[in-house]
Write a protein that binds this DNA or RNA. Structure first.
Length: 564
RNA sequence: UCCCGGGUGGUGUAACGGUAGCACAACCGCCUUUGACGCGGUCAGUCAUGGUUCGAAUCCAUGCCCGGGAGCCA
């Protein structure tokens, strides 16, 4: 599918201006800089798609760089999953996979340079004291008593910090800027802290680690990034980003902030996701209900649809909430064109065609995809005893009910027009069997006399159907806005109750016995499904519902209670 | 209280100072061998007040409202 020309946004205006002025020599080079401390979710996907998309659009380059400057939170497991997710999303970093930790020596050397210039000092204040002397918005802080140490003493102390002579938290290296600066970030920010922790890549080589503000601009500078795109909360850090680079006099990228866009009914807080995994509310980070990139992938989302969604949702500096429908719509648009249609019955009720010869079987020809004739046709076996979806039959029809109900003709898709004549019930009054007659003249579903049939329903032959232990993961993650948690609602309790449903009675079209895990179908009227590549075994598919179809009937029922 | 951002229909986003458009949602109708999809239509918006201008969503001023910021996290 052709990727549409991205619509204009403020970032592209900035880049266009830089290109026009020759600021970066006509280059565009972006990056995605995750800290490997968790799995990527839909929010990160937006950033990856934005950054790599910009690089692609301007025929520039895109880097993947791990901002692994805090060893206490980072793990190799996260590195691996992030690489996989970035690639899957189409973030083509080629051979440009970098780690901030590989720059530690260069950063250290630069820090020494700042010390020599009198722009940084070793401070013996502890965290509590630093916090107290920083001051508050609108009120100046106080200079550290160690602020005026000699360069020689700073050099000595900083080197000994590195050698590991001091315990965690005892000293820091701080930039010497201005304790009265209106921007708190400029009040002598900490550049290095002492942390005797094992780094996932550097081992115990270092016991001092750079802070984000010190490290990030240098990383961008070293990689010759042109446009360093980050989220809004870093806007207050930009003066510091610029300050460090200016003091060093090195290559100076431009930081641009944009608003992170959340999606209604999706939980993206790392803390909450971790909680769901840890407390086993889900089966793991890649549980199909999770909004993680790997979870979405396993649910059956496509990278292309995610890209289309980002393009659709746009980009700005206004924090907002995108409706989940925009995402679903992007997916539906793609799946409509690409998913083969197949018949399945998740909650079956038996139908017997009383006038259909016992023991007879016919092969019905079905379109694989009515929107794509190239997708061809397939044969589906038909016989006297069938299953249809329980919801497609109502003994007492509500108003405007077009499906199967006593006395009303309905079309079995690609098969015959049938009419319900009677029902069989068990002692409890439940319908166990629907008895119909079929019209032999309507094979294929066409009425030779041209009579109009309002309803068309799907079916499977009881004798031929594949009975598989279908498990269904549903699409929506929480019914309630996850932010309501703050108001005392438990988002976990509000997870869609159908989000993980075992369907032991499900019957599938026999062709699905050979269904390859990892393929998508549209089950007529039920939605788009994905055969879970992780859990499916031959003949025993586990389906994730990728997107549901719009259900007009449900809306009629809702609006008009009499319809029920 | 100080600093930085930002306010365009229900939601999200466009519009060299020149017809306020697009998508999603909702609603109505048409079509339909998926009540899906598709097609047509409807509803609905520039935070406020001044100023500059032939002309302002856009430039200026003031006000109001919203978001972010006081980690040795990123």
């Amino acid at each position: 599918m052709e990727t549409p020309e991205p619509k204009s946004n403020f970032i592209r205006e900035i880049i266009d201006a830089d290109l026009a002025s020759g600021k970066f020599g006509g280059r565009v080079h972006t990056r995605f800089p995750p800290e490997p401390n968790g799995y990527l979710h839909i929010g990160h996907a937006t950033s990856i798609i934005l950054n790599s998309g910009l690089a692609k659009h301007y025929k520039g380059k895109f880097n993947l760089r791990f901002d692994d400057t805090n060893p206490s939170k980072e793990e190799q497991e996260y590195v691996d999953s992030i690489i996989e997710d970035v690639k899957w999303l189409g973030g083509d970093f080629e051979d440009r996979l970098f780690f901030a930790s590989d720059y530690f020596q260069q950063m250290y050397d630069w820090a020494v340079e700042l010390v020599k210039k009198g722009k940084a000092f070793v401070c013996d204040l502890n965290a509590e004291e630093v916090r107290k002397t920083r001051g508050i918005p609108g009120e100046a802080g106080k200079d550290s008593p160690f602020r005026n140490r000699s360069v020689a003493e700073n050099l000595d102390l900083f080197e000994r910090m590195r050698k590991g002579e001091f315990p965690d938290g005892s000293r820091t290296l701080r930039a010497k800027i201005d304790m009265a600066h209106p921007n708190l970030n400029m009040r002598d920010p900490v550049m290095y802290r002492i942390l005797h922790a094992e780094h996932h890549r550097q081992g115990n080589k270092w016991c001092i680690y750079p802070m984000y503000d010190w490290a990030h601009g240098l990383e961008d500078s070293l990689e010759k990034i042109t446009h360093s795109i980050c989220t809004l909360e870093f806007a207050d850090h930009r003066p510091l980003y610029d300050w460090f680079i200016d003091q060093l006099g090195v290559y100076h990228p431009r930081q641009i902030e944009f608003a992170r866009r959340t999606i209604s009914n999706m939980v993206t807080s790392k803390r909450k996701l971790l909680e769901l995994v840890r407390d086993k509310h889900v089966e793991g980070w890649d549980d199909p209900r999770m909004p993680t990139v790997c979870g979405l992938r396993r649910r059956g989302y496509t990278a292309g649809a995610l890209r289309a969604f980002c393009e659709d949702a746009g980009i700005s500096k206004v924090p907002g909430i995108s409706d989940i429908w925009v995402l679903e719509n992007a997916l539906r648009n793609e799946l409509n064109k690409t998913s083969p249609r197949v018949m399945a019955v998740l909650k079956p009720v038996k139908v017997v065609l009383t006038n259909y010869p016992e023991g007879q079987t016919e092969e019905m020809t079905c379109n694989n995809n009515p929107e794509d004739t190239a997708a061809g046709t397939r044969k589906v076996p038909f016989s006297r005893e069938l299953y249809i979806e329980k919801d497609d039959f109502k003994e007492v029809p509500p108003k405007k009910f077009f499906r199967m109900t006593p006395g009303q003709e309905v079309r079995l898709r690609a098969a015959y027009i049938v009419k319900c004549e009677s029902v069989v019930k068990d002692a409890a009054g439940n319908v166990t069997e629907v008895r119909c007659t079929y019209d032999p003249a309507t094979k294929g579903g066409d009425a030779p006399d041209g009579r109009k049939i309002k309803g068309t329903i799907h079916w499977v032959s009881a004798k031929h159907a594949l009975r598989a232990p279908v498990r269904l993961y549903d699409a929506l993650f929480t019914k309630r806005d996850p932010d309501d948690v703050e108001e005392g609602h438990d988002y976990k309790e509000n997870m869609n109750p159908g989000s993980l449903e075992a369907l032991p009675e499900a019957r599938l079209e026999p062709s699905l016995a050979a269904a390859a895990p990892g393929t998508r179908w549209q089950f007529e009227r039920l939605g788009y499904f994905f055969a879970d590549p992780k859990d499916s075994k031959p003949g025993a598919p586990v389906f994730n519902r990728t997107v549901t179809l719009k259900d007009t009937w449900a809306r009629i029922e809702q609006k008009d209670p009499a319809a029920k």
